[in-house]
């Protein structure tokens, strides 16, 4: 049984984030992806399955090999997901810095 996966959970895991980074530059087979980790191959397969279920990555058959590649549309959606929250704090902190710099000049 496949549970419907939450994209947010998928990207929060450090191993899965590394897989996404690896695939950002080129398509890779499961074997090549797994060779980048010390963890057991089935563990990496499980991560690939989760990322595939969330549509963050896609499989493509090339001859006898299956290559994994990023699903750019979905990735963009996700990259934008945490960004508003980070941006909110970034804007506040920029404001804090400005306020305190002018305060510093006055005193």
């Amino acid at each position: 049984m496949n549970l419907r996966r939450d994209v947010f959970q998928a990207i929060a895991d450090p191993t899965r984030r590394t897989i996404l980074l690896l695939l950002a530059t080129q398509s890779m087979t499961a074997g090549v992806i797994a060779s980048n980790f010390d963890t057991a191959r089935p563990t990496v397969s499980k991560h690939l399955q989760i990322l595939t279920e969330c549509e963050l990555i896609k499989q493509e058959q090339q001859g006898r090999e299956i290559y994994y590649q990023l699903n750019a549309d979905k990735m963009k959606e996700v990259a934008d997901f945490l960004e508003p929250f980070r941006k909110l704090w970034d804007d506040r902190f920029n404001q804090l810095e400005q306020v305190m710099k002018s305060y510093q000049l006055k005193y």
Partner: peptide
């Protein structure tokens, strides 16, 4: 990025870090 946000899988916390061009007392 000056402001970083870390929200790890399955944790009930977030970490926000930021460096400022300000002395710590300010």
């Amino acid at each position: 990025q000056k402001t970083k946000l870390i929200a790890d899988d399955g944790k009930q916390e977030i970490l926000i870090t930021r460096t400022f061009d300000l002395p710590v007392d300010l």
